[in-house]
Deep mutational scan, measured.
Amino acid sequence: MQNSHSGVNQLGGVFVNGRPLPDSTRQKIVELAHSGARPCDISRILQVSNGCVSKILGRYYETGSIRPRAIGGSKPRVATPEVVSKIAQYKRECPSIFAWEIRDRLLSEGVCTNDNIPSVSSINRVLRNLASEKQQMGADGMYDKLRMLNGQTGSWGTRPGWYPGTSVPGQPTQDGCQQQEGGGENTNSISSNGEDSDEAQMRLQLKRKLQRNRTSFTQEQIEALEKEFERTHYPDVFARERLAAKIDLPEARIQVWFSNRRAKWRREEKLRNQRRQASNTPSHIPISSSFSTSVYQPIPQPTTPVSSFTSGSMLGRTDTALTNTYSALPPMPSFTMANNLPMQPPVPSQTSSYSCMLPTSPSVNGRSYDTYTPPHMQTHMNSQPMGTSGTTSTGLISPGVSVPVQVPGSEPDMSQYWPRLQ
């Protein structure tokens, strides 16, 4: 039975679970980093996980050691009161100082060594604690504590007292930064006198190289990059290397530039699409467009005044059976039934097929058609009795279509119309 579990990581490298990497692998990681390889490249070359490479390099940059820390136990506290007071002093002298600059000053002034120097995250935590204590304490208590930490007896009751030896409130920041720059020169002199001055200088240079600022491109470089971006948004590694040799930039910087440029292009394309949609959409909808001609068919113009009344309900007709019959029939052209047409008796099958359309009241044959006459024609229609054979009435077949029909004066039988409509 094995005491430890061995495995293979996602890159194909072998590791022992819970145990640190061998010293030979750690040394190779540092050597590759000094030669300029990126952590992701080191991870692929040595088949070590990216997190492990970053952790080893980060500890090497901070402490200069590649040895693993002790497994188990607690780390001794490195942010001692003396170190905290120095950090507060540096922050007062130059409020814009960075944590890694404070760390360098602690090393250069001999406050800490490589073994007990606090990390950048520890210094940031100390600065946050100082800021929170400043908010919790009152103004007087804060000034007393700062005077105690600074070891001075001057008056701290006013704002300019934060910067000793100065009279203009805006000047101390520059003086403090100048003092810090002077301390940086002392850093070089002190570290050069040490035993491991060369190694420390190499480590600091490598650290500065990794902690780079934003790349500033010249106009020629920007023009070359934009020209390549117009050709393709995704250049391959050969195109990037050719462009890197042409404009004297690292291939990694060119790759990052193209990634950022593609993101910018997507944002601009989104804005262009929004403007295009806004320009195509009308600002207001016309009133006429809300009524579609496919839904509402136009009603033909009436030929006679009587045809303006298109349904039985508008003429005072309360018989719903006839109203439904007229509205359900398709529109037909106007025609006239003459008196000489043969009077065919209704076929029983045809009569039964339209039995649902006729009223059940037996008085329908005896009703006159003056009910369908509009009010303004009552006088004219009353002067001509319906009993004469020459009287013409208008029957409504569908809305908007008038059918003048000659009705025999002897017997106005409704059943004569249905064979004609089939």
Rank of each mutant, 00 (worst) to 15 (best):
I87S: 05
Q47F: 03
V84W: 07
L106G: 00
C112R: 07
I123G: 04
T25D: 05
S121L: 03
A70N: 12
E93I: 12
I29E: 04
S74E: 01
A131E: 08
P118I: 07
R103W: 04
L46Q: 04
Q10N: 06
I117D: 08
D23R: 07
R38F: 03
S132N: 12
S85P: 03
Q27N: 08
N3W: 08
K75I: 05
D104V: 10
R92Q: 14
R67E: 10
L106Y: 02
S54H: 11
G36I: 00
D23G: 08
Q2E: 11
W100S: 08
S24H: 14
G73T: 03
F98H: 09
H5D: 07
P68S: 03
F15V: 02
E101K: 13
E101H: 07
N9L: 01
M142N: 07
G12W: 00
P76T: 05
G12S: 00
A33W: 08
E62H: 10
V48W: 02
N3H: 12
Q136H: 10
N124T: 05
A70Y: 06
I97L: 13
Q27R: 13
S24F: 10
D41M: 07
E82M: 12
E62I: 07
N114R: 12
L149T: 15
V84P: 01
E82K: 13
M137V: 11
T63G: 02
K55L: 00
E109I: 08
G110H: 14
N150T: 11
Y90R: 04
R67F: 07
E109W: 08
K91H: 06
S96E: 12
M148L: 11
N129T: 13
W100Q: 07
G141Q: 13
V8W: 04
V14Y: 14
A139E: 12
R128Q: 06
K134M: 12
C52P: 01
G7T: 12
D140E: 07
Y60V: 00
A131V: 10
D115Q: 15
C112I: 06
G73R: 07
T25A: 07
I97G: 15
E82F: 12
E31N: 12
I102G: 05
R125V: 00
G18Y: 00
P22K: 07
T80C: 04
N17I: 15
N9S: 01
G36C: 04
R125G: 04
L149D: 15
G12K: 03
S122E: 00
I123E: 00
P81I: 07
S96L: 09
G72L: 03
R38P: 05
V78W: 01
S132A: 13
N9I: 01
P118N: 01
L127Q: 08
N150P: 11
Y143N: 12
Q27G: 10
D23K: 07
V8A: 01
A37G: 05
Q89H: 10
A88H: 07
P81T: 08
N9A: 04
K86M: 10
G110P: 07
P68I: 00
G12V: 00
V83T: 08
K28M: 10
S43C: 06
A131D: 07
A99F: 00
G51I: 00
R44E: 06
T63L: 03
I71H: 15
I87L: 10
N17G: 03
N150S: 11
A131C: 09
I87K: 02
Y143H: 12
L106H: 01
L32P: 00
E62A: 14
G36S: 05
D144P: 11
H34K: 12
K55H: 07
A88L: 10
R147I: 14
S65N: 05
L57F: 03
Q135T: 13
I102C: 05
E62Q: 14
A70S: 11
G12L: 04
V120M: 09
E93D: 09
L32A: 06
S108Y: 10
I97C: 14
R44W: 05
N124R: 11
R26G: 02
I97A: 14
L21G: 03
D140L: 10
L146E: 12
G51Y: 01
N9P: 04
F98T: 05
D41K: 06
V53K: 00
G36M: 04
G36H: 06
C112D: 09
E133H: 12
N17L: 15
V16F: 15
K134A: 08
Q2G: 11
I29F: 02
I66Q: 04
H34Y: 11
S4C: 10
E101I: 09
R19D: 03
V111C: 09
T80G: 04
Q10M: 08
S85R: 12
Q2I: 13
I29D: 04
R147C: 11
Q10Y: 02
S35P: 01
M137P: 12
P81A: 08
I117H: 12
P68N: 03
N3F: 11
A131R: 15
C52E: 00
G12N: 02
A99L: 02
A79G: 04
G36K: 04
M137N: 11
Q89F: 13
P81L: 07
V16N: 12
S122T: 15
P76R: 11
R92L: 09
A70D: 07
G13C: 01
Q47G: 05
G7S: 15
R59A: 05
I45A: 14
P68D: 06
R19T: 04
V84N: 06
M148D: 15
Y90K: 06
G13L: 02
C94N: 15
S49M: 01
I87Y: 02
R59H: 10
T113M: 11
S119P: 02
M148T: 15
V8K: 07
I123Y: 00
T80N: 05
R26V: 01
Q89C: 15
E109F: 10
D104W: 09
E31K: 07
L32K: 04
T80V: 07
G110L: 11
H34C: 10
R147E: 14
V8Q: 04
E109P: 05
P76W: 02
I45D: 08
C94D: 09
G12E: 03
Q2M: 13
S74Q: 05
E31S: 09
V8Y: 07
G110W: 10
R59S: 03
L149Q: 08
R67W: 05
A37S: 09
P22D: 06
L146V: 12
R19F: 03
